[in-house]
Design a protein around this nucleic acid. Structure first.
Lengths: 220, 220
DNA sequence: AAAAGTATGTTGAATTTTCAACAAATGGAG
DNA sequence: CTCCATTTGTTGAAAATTCAACATACTTTT
């Protein structure tokens, strides 16, 4: 477990906790580390929402398949983010999405009930962790709101610009996005070829520079 | 305050708490009841996210205006639902949406900090409330996920059918929705006239019955 | 360095949405 | 009941998306 402390200490769930206490908590929670290969399913839609995950290395997508088999990417998950925590906490019967490894990755799985229902004795940090978990879920809520803001645009151009402007606000006018074209299209709920066309247009209009997944917003 | 206990006792925030304890908590939290008239703003985008609300009577919409002034309804809020709780808990600086009264309504406002940072002495129910709040936020998360599922459909028909099927799963094949046509269009991120046309088509195809905001899904 | 495989860009036709304008239906006030 | 205001339905033209097919660019492997 020691080797993961670097990542874990950056994770919201363990914010304001000392490394030694994190180790103790993991023990108490029965946390398990799993490896999984590219394209492997980490969670499958419909299965019981018993565990939450912490992404330790690699990258995964939260995905939903629509009625006709179109892939929709809800969001990408990178270290040290949590995933699946809301489903467990809401005590819903089953996970409503798929979590799919986009590259080889390592994940930590924790039984949500072990967090929600304080266990034994030693865990004086339990209430802090619940507090941290609540904040994490609230932050995820903001991200979902942001996603809704993005995809509520009516045209591909609107969606793309909203997304890019949010990125620029966060990272400055130059940034690299975690999606390839198909991934960005699936995240924006748009057509890949149409998205490529729109990016070309914006380039010609000198609104953006773009090379693969590197973008720069130009002054207007 | 007594007159609101009927509603408040149904609110997730006070789940598994006795009425007398709810009253005590409200006191301790400094909860205030406000009235507001139709179309009045309850929260305005950009203002500090200091309070959360409980809808006591009436109806409100969570709204975002896009770049070109199109109204987007994130969701409707009806008693005894919470609103604004995620923004406060994530300790974001400002609210990213508008909350607008759709009818005259009464709301209870609670300073989030009073919940997050346990106060004085008496409040033995504080930790239960934090737990309830966490569950509420997690459930809202599921709703946002559902909303994303709905509006990620590519055509108006897809969005509408996804929405109706979710309603049917929850309430049975006949149900009344909380939106008028324009509201439903703004919720589905679609065009009102196009939505009306699609509803007409579905009616002619014997997929649904519909009279104003009453819908029935017919067997296929 | 060439080949193979993957990702990205381009194009045109068919479908769908959007927009505006108006018709029909509904509900409430007098 | 009638009038008035609002909501819902309908239509056609313009704009945008989707889809398929192919061209080009980029990466990795051999």
């Amino acid at each position: 477990m020691e080797k993961y402390l670097g990542i874990l200490s950056k994770c919201r769930l363990f914010e304001n906790m000392e490394n030694e206490n994190i180790t103790a908590m993991l023990d108490c929670l029965g946390a398990e580390v799993h490896s999984c290969g590219k394209n492997q399913n980490i969670f499958i839609e419909g299965e019981p929402a018993s565990h939450m995950g912490i992404m330790l290395s690699g990258k995964a997508n939260i995905i939903r398949m629509d009625f006709y088999g179109n892939r929709s990417i809800v969001t990408v998950i990178e270290p040290p983010q949590l995933f699946g925590e809301s489903f467990g906490c809401a005590e819903t019967k089953s996970v409503p999405v798929n979590v799919v490894a986009e590259s080889d990755c390592e994940i930590m799985l924790i039984d949500i009930r072990k967090i929600l229902h304080p266990c034994c004795n030693a865990c004086e940090f339990h209430s802090r962790m619940i507090f941290n978990l609540m904040k994490s879920i609230a932050e995820k809520n903001l991200l979902l709101n942001q996603k809704i803001e993005i995809i509520s645009g009516r045209t591909t151009r609107e969606k793309l610009m909203t997304y890019l402007m949010i990125q620029a606000k966060e990272h400055g006018s130059s940034f690299t996005i975690p999606y390839d074209r198909q991934g960005l299209a699936d995240f924006l709920e748009a057509d890949r070829s149409g998205l490529s066309a729109e990016i070309s247009k914006l380039r010609k209009e000198n609104v953006i520079e773009c090379k693969r997944n590197f973008f720069r917003l130009l002054e207007k």
